[in-house]
Each structure stands twice: as C-alpha cells, then as structure tokens.
C-alpha cells in the first residue's frame, strides 16, 4: 500500500475513530483511572482527598474468596444461557423454515413479543408465574408452596430460563435470515449429488451459516456475562445469603450501593478484560480453523 493511500484511509476512518474515542476510549480511561484510586462518596463530593492506591483495589478484589465464587458462578451461568439461547434459537429458526406461512407468522410474533418485553417487566411477570403460593406454574404442577427462588439451583435455573426466553428471538431471527439467504441451487446440487438431509445440514448449511453463528455467539456471550436485571429482580438482589450473585450484581452491591466507586471500577475493568479475552480467544480459535470474520 502506498503512503498516500494509507493517509486517505485514515482520513476516511477519522470520524468513526473520533466517535469511538469519545464514546468508548474516554469512559474506559476514566474507569481505569478511578479503579486505581480510593474513590468513595466522600471523595466525589469533596469531603476527603483522593488517594492513589495503585493496584490496591484489584488486590482487595482478587484476594477475596467471594469474588472467585461469584466469577465461577457467572461463567457457568453465562455458559448455560448462551448454550440454551443458541439451541432454542437455532431449533426454532429451522422450524420456521419448515412450517406454513401462517404458523411462521405466529412464531415470529410470539418471539418478537418476548424480545420486546422490557427486562424488568419480563422478570416480574416470570416471578408472578412462579410465585410460591399464587403462581400459575405451581397451580398447574400441584406444587403450591414450593419456592422456586429459594434453592440455589432452582433459582439459577429459573433466571436462566427467563434470560433464554428474552434473548432467543435475536438468534432465531438472525439464523432464519441466514438460512433463507442460502441459495436454493446449492442445496439442490447437494441433493442431486445424493447427500442426505443430515449431510446437507452439517456439510453445506452449517459452513455457510458460520459467520452468522459467530456473531450471535459473541453477542450472546457478552449479553449473558453481563446479566444484571434478571438476577437482581428475580432473586431479590442475589438470592438468599448472596448465593445467586453474578459479577454485575456483585459489583453493584459491593461497590456502587456501598459508594466504593474505586472498587466498582476495578470490577468493571476486570469484567471488560475477561470479555475481551473470551472474544479474542473465540476469534482466534475460529481463524485457526480457517474461517475469518
């Protein structure tokens, strides 16, 4: 590439770069800066001097036993949610390509309804449905009095189901569009060559859908790792004795509600770094298998 071309390229990129720096770079810079200081409400409102701690907040965070428990829980919870979302979304996308138009319309309307429901409202409605004494689910199952949000695993399961319910439509619609975009001639040619349905799905459709699958997987990982609303509302801020905490709720409870903004920022930085690592690792793994985004 000649020098002149490079300059022109940068000039075209400049507006986007400026927006990125303003909307992403500066906040991240502030976040890192705050995470290196003892920065509480007293410091914000000028009642006490700001003290530079270096990595003190990180040491306090990573040295705490609970952080590691919460981190493990978050990773496990996000993994279940991502897996469930992809599975349900993909299954329904395939279903949508196979059914009559009216059934497809109904399916899409139902999915869009779930997608459009605000997280707070959706979580609250699920709580009503699963209420121990008055809930519809317990009424149907004949388990009146059983509290779904009490046990650690039933609570996590319930919240995971809610998260999957409100995030599968994105996967379903994106994959449906992807399947529809596969040229009919390709599938026809494969069929004429004598490939079975299974073989067509695995060796023709799946590779063609790969870029789309990649995008929805990364999106889902990022979303589900950062779940806050559902856990906060459905388990009453982290469950009995905090056993349903995930990182975002933990950060809110330990840091922001307690006015420890420095520590909260440190948790934010750790989360950002972890998400970047996940995403980069995933991209590398894909590149190695011969597929670039």
């Amino acid at each position: 590439m000649r020098a002149g071309q490079g300059r022109a390229a940068y000039a075209y990129l400049a507006p986007a770069l400026l927006v990125l720096i303003g909307l992403l770079g500066y906040p991240v810079y502030q976040l890192v800066l705050i995470s290196l200081h003892d920065y509480g409400q007293e410091q914000v409102s000028g009642g006490a001097p700001v003290e530079f701690l270096g990595l003190g907040n990180y040491r306090a965070l990573l040295g705490g036993e609970q952080f590691w428990t919460v981190l493990t829980q978050t990773v496990g919870f996000a993994a279940v949610c991502v897996g469930g979302t992809l599975l349900v979304g993909a299954a329904l996308a395939v279903l949508a390509t196979r059914v009559r138009p009216w059934a497809r319309t109904v399916l899409f309307l139902a999915a869009l309804g779930a997608w459009a429901t605000p997280a707070v409202a959706g979580s609250t409605i699920w709580l009503f449905l699963f209420d121990a004494n008055l809930g519809f689910v317990n009424e149907v199952l004949g388990t009146t009095g059983f509290s779904w949000t009490y046990g650690r695993w039933t609570a996590f399961g319930l919240v995971a189901a809610q998260v999957i319910w409100c995030s599968f439509p994105f996967v379903m619609i994106t994959l449906y569009a992807g399947i529809r975009a596969i040229p009919a001639e390709v599938l026809e040619a494969a069929a004429l060559d004598g490939a079975s349905t299974r073989r067509i799905a695995l060796s023709v459709m799946l590779p063609l859908l790969r870029p789309i699958l990649l995008v929805v997987t990364i999106q889902s990982i990022i979303w589900d790792f950062k779940v806050f609303t559902q856990i906060y509302i459905m388990t009453g801020g982290g469950g009995i004795a905090g056993r349903n905490l995930v990182l975002n709720v933990y950060a809110y409870q330990q840091a922001f509600a307690a006015s420890e903004y420095g520590l909260g920022a440190a948790i934010g930085v750790v989360m950002t770094a972890l998400l970047l690592l996940f995403t980069l690792g995933y991209l590398r793994a894909l590149r190695r298998s011969g597929e670039a985004l």
Partner: peptide, 24 residues
C-alpha cells in the same frame, strides 16, 4: 459511622441470618 451504610449495602447482617437459617 459512615461504614454502616456500606455494611448495610453489602447485606452483611442479612447474610449472617440467612446462612444460619438455610443451614449452610
């Protein structure tokens, strides 16, 4: 003490009660 607001926000005493009540 200002620390009380933090102890309250971090649900320290509810956690104590709940850990015992659940038998954990």
């Amino acid at each position: 003490t200002p620390a009380w607001a933090k102890i309250d926000a971090q649900a320290v005493l509810p956690t104590l009660i709940q850990q015992v009540a659940t038998g954990a």
